[in-house]
């Protein structure tokens, strides 16, 4: 009787998702975020300035901070801050989802040249910073700080797969173990942003090899990048071991058990930490065609988890979380 019910249940949509270990929103919030992410640690990741200082403390490489603008009357200092730089990047300290980020790659007589080739006048750039300070892009509209960073030069092996923007790597790190990874490629439809819900391409990456598993855009599978026409299955992330080690280090740095780590591979500097997320999304499972639950539970079942070193954790993950 009970077995029959179980059999029918397994055939329903609910049962099928459960069988494949897909992590749902309720379970993520209840069993992982609420349980493994202490509330008081959130500011470490929600505030990029704090993340950056913490990263420097732990010798984790991050894009270099040129300066921070905290008050409206300091906006004029921008010009002296970036005087010697050809390109730079302005982002809100407490922003989320890539909102409010402006990338400047050069200048001409009219003003600054944005990554997409458009020109923004110095006056408009000042106004953008003023908006950042007023909290236009921050969580809850709170007053914010504008950060100015050096430009990231994405590794050439990666840029072929992306249209504008910098391709970044999202790794879900659970208790220090990298459990799932995804490359996020911006495209025309996403306006140069690397966010999946804005239409960016997500490429699931095999934890074992760093090679592409599957790619999606707007929730549906795709084979080639819509703008560059690159075959996405050819994507192989370079410096894979290094990237995983960096991602795992972020757990030791923040203490957050369920963490989304966004990394980027710089041409000159190698792997860099871009930002951290205490509430990473679930679409990474669709990109990988795999559920998170079996991997999370595998880590939860390990004994004396605190004795694993960074390298041991990466090794365990590469051995156990390979794509099928």
């Amino acid at each position: 009787m009970l077995a029959a019910v179980k059999k029918i249940w397994a055939r329903t949509a609910y049962g099928q998702l459960a069988n494949q270990g897909v992590l749902g929103m309720n379970r993520r919030n209840h069993s992982y975020i609420a349980r493994y992410n202490p509330r008081h640690l959130y500011p470490l990741v929600d505030n990029k300035l704090k993340t950056k200082r913490l990263a420097e403390e732990y010798s984790v490489r991050v894009p270099k901070l040129v300066g921070a603008i905290e008050n409206q009357h300091d906006i004029i200092l921008l010009d002296s801050l970036v005087a010697k730089l050809q390109g730079f990047c302005i982002k809100p300290c407490k922003g989320s989802g890539g909102k409010g980020i402006i990338v400047i790659t050069g200048r001409d007589a009219r003003g600054f040249i944005k990554a997409n080739g458009q020109v923004i006048t110095a006056e408009n750039l000042h106004r953008h910073i003023s908006n950042i300070l007023a909290g236009l892009f921050s969580l809850g509209g709170k007053p914010d700080i504008a950060l100015i960073e050096t430009l990231i030069h994405a590794d050439e092996r990666m840029t072929a797969f992306t249209y504008e923007g910098v391709p970044d790597l999202r790794v879900i790190v659970f208790c220090g173990f990298p459990v799932m990874a995804m490359m996020r490629l911006s495209c025309k439809a996403s306006g140069g942003k690397a966010n999946l819900h804005q239409g960016a391409v997500g490429v699931g990456i095999d934890i074992k090899t760093g090679a592409a598993v599957n790619a999606i855009q707007n929730g549906a599978s795709i084979k080639v990048h819509p703008d560059t026409q690159q075959e996405l299955s050819a994507l192989q992330v370079p410096a894979w071991q290094e990237l995983l080690e960096l991602a795992c280090g972020c757990y030791d740095m923040t203490g957050l058990g369920y963490l989304g780590v966004d990394l980027v591979l710089d041409r000159d500097l190698g792997p860099l930490l871009l930002e951290l997320n205490a509430r990473p999304g679930l679409s990474i499972q669709i990109a990988n065609k795999a559920g998170l639950l079996p991997r999370l539970q595998a880590v939860e079942q390990l004994k004396k988890i605190e004795r694993y070193s960074n390298l041991e954790r990466v090794a365990f993950a590469r051995e156990h979380f390979a794509a099928l």
Binding site: A13, Y14, L17, A18, V22, G24, N26, Q285, I286
Partner: peptide
């Protein structure tokens, strides 16, 4: 901690 109805569509 089960799935939401809308997640059936999402996944």
């Amino acid at each position: 901690t089960g799935y939401r109805l809308t997640e059936l569509r999402r996944f």
